[in-house]
Design a protein around this nucleic acid. Structure first.
Lengths: 200, 200
DNA sequence: CTGCATATTGACTGAACGGTCAAAAACAAG
DNA sequence: CTTGTTTTTGACCGTTCAGTCAATATGCAG
């Protein structure tokens, strides 16, 4: 019936994910988008709307992929301590794969775009909240196990929500510092300290 | 000998500090700069060089003022716990004064500019390091007091450096989340948890 | 008052930007 | 082959941007 599309939507979104992640919203021009996706200007606007709409869609893809993976990783860990360790290990692995100073796309969006785009702000808040919630669930689960073992010191039950959001804040700060180019040794110490903070 | 300047350099830098802090580098045009400082284009370029040089100078002013104040605040606190509390109290106070979603200029620069400007990256790293160092000094001082009191549990002496950098990462994350517009209640929990992490 | 050094003024420039549009192209259905 | 629908193509538009520059103004020294 109609002319078929030449591009693969998922592939385009993933390419743009990497581009926006590394360079932010403002430093990627629509010419760049064309070059990166091998699409012409008109096709891009026809398929995705304007630049902002593309960015929003791409950011959601990132959120689903990366924060979704993080939440699953936390859920499948035996306890919060190893959950945090696994999370930071994944971050370090990502850096070693060539994304040394990229930080976290969601955190970057929080600084660059969220203040002038409520929809982006809502998206960022949503994914950060899922992370905090995953931490909280993990902490409460660990607490339950601890009390089953008749251990008197229920380490986290006092303020598990505070600690959960603290872990999120640390993770955000870690990523910002990674993007800035803070030394790996410092990042490693931050990671270690986060693990320690949930180790009995 | 020569025509005297009409503007006050310090005042201009402070005005631009607020503008760049709130809006970032890219969202402030040189027209904006002119409007904010009541200067003409040529005068600005004559006095400060180009936009990047102005930004760099302004960022350094911010660093000296705000991180300088933070370090002094930590030094003058009785122990690390109250130091952290005071630091976050100052942050909340700044928010209540109309800078609700501004975050921290240094952290914003870390995300927006540092990745494409090594000089900015170095500046950011420098001030973040001063903060970590202040935390570390405070922790070691607190530890010393604790051991003088013959208390067996020297809480922080195991990994004071890790904890110090963790406090910095948390502070950075806190500010990013504040800029995003995360609920005040969440920010308060992060603050509380940071204080708890250095309370015996 | 004269000359000199510097600051101010604001119009100007070229480049880069996001976004538009009409024409051409590529399919499937009849 | 014709028709209808959607995509592709790339030239084009108005705007905004950082930065420049020659003319003018303002002080001080002699």
């Amino acid at each position: 019936m109609a002319r078929p599309r030449k591009f693969d939507r998922e592939d385009v979104l993933n390419r743009m994910k990497l581009a926006f992640w590394e360079n932010g919203f403002n430093d990627i021009s629509m010419d760049d988008v064309g070059r990166i996706t091998n699409m012409n200007r008109g096709s891009i606007y026809n398929a995705f709307g304007d630049k902002r709409a593309l960015y929003l869609e791409v950011l959601e893809v990132y959120g689903d992929q990366h924060y979704g993976a993080a939440v699953k990783l936390i859920q499948h860990s035996q306890n919060t301590s190893s959950a945090v360790r696994d999370l930071y290990d994944a971050a370090f692995k990502s850096m070693e794969e060539g994304r040394t100073h990229w930080g976290c796309f969601m955190c970057n969006a929080a600084v660059e775009v969220a203040p002038v785009d409520t929809e982006v702000a809502n998206l960022v808040t949503k994914y950060l909240t899922t992370l905090s919630t995953a931490f909280l669930n993990s902490l409460e689960e660990s607490d339950q196990l601890t009390s089953q073992n008749d251990s008197p010191a229920m380490k986290y039950s006092k303020n598990p929500q505070n600690l959960a959001e603290q872990l999120t804040a640390s993770y955000v700060g870690f990523n910002i510092m990674a993007r800035t180019g803070v030394a790996t040794a410092s990042l490693q110490r931050i990671s270690d300290s986060a693990v320690e903070s949930v180790t009995s």
